[in-house]
Every structure is written in C-alpha cells, then in structure tokens.
Computed example of a mutant assay.
Amino acid sequence: MKILRICITSIGSATALNLIKLLRKQTKYHVEIIGLDSNHFGYTSGSLLVDQFIQSPLASEERYFQFMENVIANEKVDMLIPIHDYEIYRLSKQKLDVNMVLPDQATVGLFRDKLLSAKSMQEIGITVPPIIKLDSPLAENHEKVIIRDRVGVGSTGIQILSGADYLQVSNGLDENKKFVQRFITGDEYTVDVFSDRSGSPKFIIPRSRIEVKAGVATKVRIVYQQELIYLTKKILNKYPIPGFCNVQFIVNEKGAFFIELNPRYGGMSISSSLASVNVMQLFVDHFVKHESLSDMSEYMKMVKWNSVVTRYYEEMIFYDED
C-alpha cells in the first residue's frame, strides 16, 4: 500500500489536532502526517502527534511561500491542508504546486471580510443582524450593538455596547476595519459542511452549542435543523466551496440570522464526524484518490441526530533537555 503523505499546518490548533485524530482513526489508508507550526518541537501537543514535525515561519512572513514550496518538494507531499485563516487567504492568492482544496480567491476574500459577506447574504435573501452605519444616530434606538472587526477570527475585536455608549465612541471607529450590527441574542448554531470538488454539499450537519468555556464550545448537540440546512444549501449554491466549511447562525423567535462563514474545518467540526462517518476518509477518497462520492441524501442518513458531543483535554509532556 502506497504511503500517503499529508501535510497539516498550524498543528498547535484544536482544528489541526482533530484532523490528526480522524486520520489516525481511519484504517483504509496508510497515512504519514507532516505537521507544521511556528512553535518549537514539543511546545505544542500537535508536534508530538505527527510522524514528522517541521517548524515553519508565520504565514505573514515574506519567506513563508518559499518555505512551503521547499517542504512540498522535499517531503513529497500528496496533500496540503492549511488550517489558519490567513494561511488560507494567502494560499488562495498565490498557488502552490500541490494538491490542496481551497475555494477560489474571490470567495475566500469575500468571507474573510465579515461586512462584505453580511451584505452578500442580504443580496440572496439570507437574514443578518441589521447593519448600522458608523455615523448613524439610529444606533441609539437599539438596546445593544456589537462592534466587529471586518477581518478577524472568532470573538477577537468584538465589543458589545448600549446604543447610547456606542454613539460616544463611533466617531473614532475606522470603517475600513470595523463595522456595527444590532446585537441579537438566541441559540448559537454552527453548521458543518463537507462538499465535493465542485462544491456540491455531501454533509450539512447543524450543531447547537450547549456549553462554551473561554469562547470555545465544549459541549454540542447534533440537531436536524431543517431551516439551517436549507439556508446553508442556498448560500453554497451561490458560493460553492469544495472540501470543508462551517457556517454560524443565531436562531431566535424571529428566525435564523447569518453570522459568518469560515471556508475551513472548524475547531469543533469533529463532533459532526463522530456523529456520522469519518469525514477524513471521505476527504482522502475523493480529493486524493479521485473516487466519486454518493449523493448527499445517502450520507445524511448516516448522521446520528441528537447526539451530544463533549470535549475533554489531554496533557502531553515533552522533556526539554536544553
């Protein structure tokens, strides 16, 4: 059996660790995992879980692209899986000579900018929390507003203020970096998606957050939420995304509100795989071995709806003799 060499970046992240777990669990292929991270060996648990670790520069560094070209050539990489948002953005602009599953540059750029993506959702009839112009006095009419970075990861840069307090700081906001929406409350959902090379979804699995600690979901429920599945299909019909993505919504008595879409595997997306099939085996089947996939209806039958997935932490030790 040929050894498949799969390279995963940012292996200090929960996302990368989950992909490593799924690759180790599948038994169909003999996979060797090359892990990249800016930390030294032993200073992230992922470096101890891969077959080969290589310390990498940050994606923002000038030498990053040349470094990646060297790794791909020297290590005979069969598939590269970038994890970090900025890596994905940069690699969508400057292609590497390697098998890698990414949306086109325009799609990556659109969903990287949270304001542009919100406006694009409105254009196709998807509801978003009302967008407030930075200089609008109408902000005072809202009980609370949320200030978000146009380009950001997770909850970084978020401020939640009363409408009146917002008016006190609005003049100092840079509209090229920040935008404002009405703050809404409700149940938070993430929809995990796996699609084929044309961007046609094969899995669309919503999960609700039951417990969050320090901004990270630690307990989720896999739920058959028909409206969210329909809305996600609608989004991906307009913006096809091959491979993995996840879409975040807030649902309350007024309906479902689009929050953001991330064109990558999510930090807790492993929960959807645990409640269905090993998506990394399907990923290798299709994107490495070029096998055809079944219809979405067949895969959706495999989902164990109402499953509760909880997260736990496991420690690893590295003896630094230096």
Rank of each mutant, 00 (worst) to 15 (best):
Leu274Lys: 08
Gln94His: 14
Lys289Ser: 11
Thr185Trp: 07
Ile132Pro: 06
Arg63Ala: 14
Glu87Ala: 05
Leu91Gln: 09
Phe53Ile: 01
Lys219Glu: 11
Val151Met: 07
Ile6Lys: 10
Leu91Trp: 09
Asp174Lys: 12
Lys76Gly: 07
Asn262Val: 00
Val223Asp: 02
Asn246Arg: 10
Arg24Asn: 12
Gly186His: 08
Ile160Asn: 11
Leu48Ile: 05
Asn306Ser: 05
Gly266Phe: 00
Ser136Gly: 09
Leu138Gln: 14
Leu23Trp: 01
Ser195Gln: 00
Glu87Cys: 09
Pro130Glu: 11
Gly199His: 07
Pro57Phe: 04
Ala106Gln: 15
Glu298Leu: 13
Ser297Phe: 07
Thr310Leu: 10
His40Met: 14
Leu23Ser: 01
Val191Asn: 05
Lys219Met: 00
Asp51Cys: 04
Lys2Ser: 13
Tyr189Gly: 05
Ile210Cys: 03
Asp320Glu: 15
Val220Glu: 00
Val191Trp: 03
Lys219Asp: 00
Asn278Thr: 04
Asp174Asn: 15
Phe287Lys: 12
Ala59Ser: 15
Ile72Lys: 02
Gly199Thr: 01
Lys114Phe: 04
Leu138Asp: 13
Tyr230Glu: 14
Ala14Trp: 09
Phe194His: 03
Tyr89Ile: 13
Ser47Asp: 00
Tyr89Lys: 13
Gly152Thr: 04
Ser208Asn: 02
Ser200Arg: 15
Ser162Gln: 11
Tyr230Ile: 08
Ile54Tyr: 10
Leu91Asp: 06
Leu80Pro: 07
Tyr29Arg: 07
Arg221Lys: 01
Phe257Ala: 04
Gln94Arg: 15
Phe283Tyr: 15
Arg182Met: 15
Asp97Ala: 14
Glu253Gly: 08
Gln181Pro: 05
Tyr86Phe: 14
Lys213Asp: 12
Ser292Trp: 03
Leu49Cys: 01
Val31His: 00
Leu173Ala: 06
Val180Met: 02
His30Gln: 15
Asp285Leu: 03
Thr107Trp: 10
Asp165Phe: 09
Ile88Gln: 09
Ala217Arg: 06
Tyr224Ser: 14
Leu96Phe: 11
Val308Gly: 02
Lys213Thr: 15
Val251Cys: 11
Phe318Thr: 09
Lys301His: 10
Met79Thr: 11
Asp174Met: 15
Asn74Glu: 12
Arg150Cys: 07
Ser155Ile: 08
Tyr29Thr: 08
Ile317Ser: 14
Met302Pro: 02
Lys93Cys: 13
Glu143Phe: 14
Ile259Lys: 11
Tyr43Gly: 08
Gln248Met: 02
Gln168Met: 13
Ile259Asn: 03
Thr27Ile: 05
Gly172Val: 10
Ile81Thr: 06
Glu61Trp: 12
Tyr299Ile: 07
Leu116Gly: 09
Cys245Ser: 13
Gly186Ala: 06
Tyr89Pro: 01
Asp51Tyr: 03
Leu231Pro: 03
Asp192Asn: 06
Lys254Tyr: 13
Gly46Phe: 02
Trp305Asp: 06
Tyr319Gly: 02
Ser117Met: 10
Arg5Thr: 12
Arg221Cys: 02
Ile88Glu: 01
Phe257Trp: 11
Leu36His: 01
Thr9Met: 09
Ile317Gly: 11
Leu36Arg: 02
Met68Asn: 12
Phe249His: 09
Lys144Phe: 13
Tyr166Asn: 06
Ile33Gln: 03
Asp196Lys: 10
Val212Asn: 04
Phe283Glu: 09
Ser170Ile: 03
Gly12Ile: 03
Glu260Asp: 10
Asp322Glu: 15
Glu298Tyr: 12
Thr44Tyr: 01
Ile210Val: 09
Ala256His: 07
Lys25Phe: 06
Phe179Trp: 14
Ile241Ala: 07
Leu48Arg: 08
Phe65Leu: 12
